[in-house]
Design a protein around this nucleic acid. Structure first.
Lengths: 177, 177
DNA sequence: CTAGATACGTCAATATGGCTGACATAAAAT
DNA sequence: ATTTTATGTCAGCCATATTGACGTATCTAG
C-alpha cells in the first residue's frame, strides 16, 4: 500500500499536491464519462444487430486495415485466440467479414470487410463522428490539434503493434482538420 | 442498413466526406487506444488486490463523493443493484468502504471510503495521473483547457446524475492548471 | 526429406461482470 | 394503515474474457 509514488492526499482535498503534482481527478473522471457515452452510441445499434462491443472492435479494425491477419487482430485487441474465435466466427457466418489465404503464407487468414460489414462500420462510425464533431465545434486549429496530440500521448509506445504504428504514423503526417 | 445519416464512404479513403463531414477515424481509434492503456494502468494493480475494474469504479466514486448512496452509485455506473451488490459486498467485507445510515432517511446507506480504500484509490489515481501529466507535458494553458473542454463536450447532458452534475459544475468553475 | 515452428481452429472448463425476475425488510410518505 | 421507496438477496442467464490442450495445414531449417 505504501509503495505508490503518489501518497494519498488528505481526504476530500482534490487539489492536494505531491512532488509529482496534483492528482488529475478531473481528467480521470471526464475520461470515464466521455468514453462511456462514446461507446454507448454504438451499443444501441449493435444490439439491434445482435452484436456486442466485441463484434464492433473486430469489424472496425478489419474494415480499417484490410488484409489484417488473425494474429494482428489478437495483438490490437489484446484478447486471446479463443475469445476472438467466437466473435469472428459469427461475423464470418453472417458475412460481415470474409477470409482469404495469405499470398506468401497460406496459413494466414487475411480478413476483409464485406459491403455489409462496411455499411455497419460506417453507421457506427457516423454516430461516433457526430459526437466528436459536436464536441469539437468552435475549436480553432490549435485546440483541435491539441486534442489529437493529447490522445496520442496517452497511448503506450513500447511494443506498438502493426495497427497502432500505422495509426501513429498516419496521424503524424496528416494535419487534423 | 440504409438508415444511417452517414453513407459509407469509399473503402480505404479515410477522408471521404459527406454532408456531415468526414468520419473521424483518427479520433475514434485514438480514443480506443488511449482508453485501453489508461485503464490498463489500474488493471495490473487491481489484479494484485484480487479486484477488477468494477471494484475500481465503485471505490473511486465513493472516495470522491463521500456519502454517496447506493442509488446514486447505480445511476453513475449505470448498472443494476444486483451487479453492484456483489462488488460492493466485497469492498465492505474487506473494509475498503463503510456504510452509515442516512441522517434524514435511515433507509439509505451512505457510503464512505476507509483509509484503506483511500490509499487504494490514490494509488490507482496516481498511475493514471502520471499518464495524464506526461501526455499534457508541454501543453500551454489554452491547449490544456481545450482537452478538458473536449472531454466535457463528449459527455451526454440529458439527465445528468448527481455526480456528473457536480463534476461538470466543478470543472466549469475551476480553471484548469 | 524430415523435424520443428508457426498460424490458425477448436474443445473444455472457469471467471467476471453484466442482466432479469422475484421476493423480503425497514422506514418514509400518504 | 397502506403504499411507496431504499436496499438486500436468491436464482439463473448471457456475453466476454481467461487457461490449457490438442489437431491440422503450412512454412522453415537442417
Amino acid at each position: 500500500m505504501g509503495s505508490g509514488t503518489h501518497p494519498a492526499d488528505a481526504a476530500g482535498d482534490p487539489a492536494a499536491a505531491s512532488e509529482t503534482g496534483p492528482l488529475r481527478w478531473d481528467i480521470i473522471e471526464l475520461l470515464f464519462f466521455a468514453y462511456r457515452d462514446f461507446v454507448g452510441d454504438a451499443d444501441h445499434v449493435l444490439e439491434a444487430f445482435g452484436f456486442g462491443r466485441a463484434h464492433h472492435r473486430v469489424i472496425h479494425f478489419v474494415h480499417r486495415y484490410p488484409g489484417l491477419t488473425v494474429a494482428d487482430l489478437l495483438e490490437v485487441l489484446r484478447i486471446t485466440k479463443q475469445s476472438l474465435g467466437r466473435v469472428l466466427k459469427q461475423l464470418l457466418d453472417e458475412e460481415y467479414i470474409v477470409q482469404r489465404a495469405g499470398d506468401q503464407d497460406r496459413r494466414q487468414r487475411l480478413l476483409f470487410a464485406t459491403a455489409k460489414g462496411e455499411a455497419l462500420v460506417a453507421k457506427l462510425a457516423g454516430l461516433q463522428t457526430d459526437r466528436i464533431t459536436r464536441a469539437l465545434r468552435g475549436f480553432d486549429r490549435s485546440e483541435t490539434e491539441a486534442v489529437g496530440r493529447f490522445l496520442r500521448a496517452m497511448i503506450d509506445r513500447d511494443d506498438p503493434d502493426k495497427v497502432l504504428e500505422q495509426l501513429l504514423d498516419h496521424n503524424r503526417s496528416v494535419a487534423e482538420d
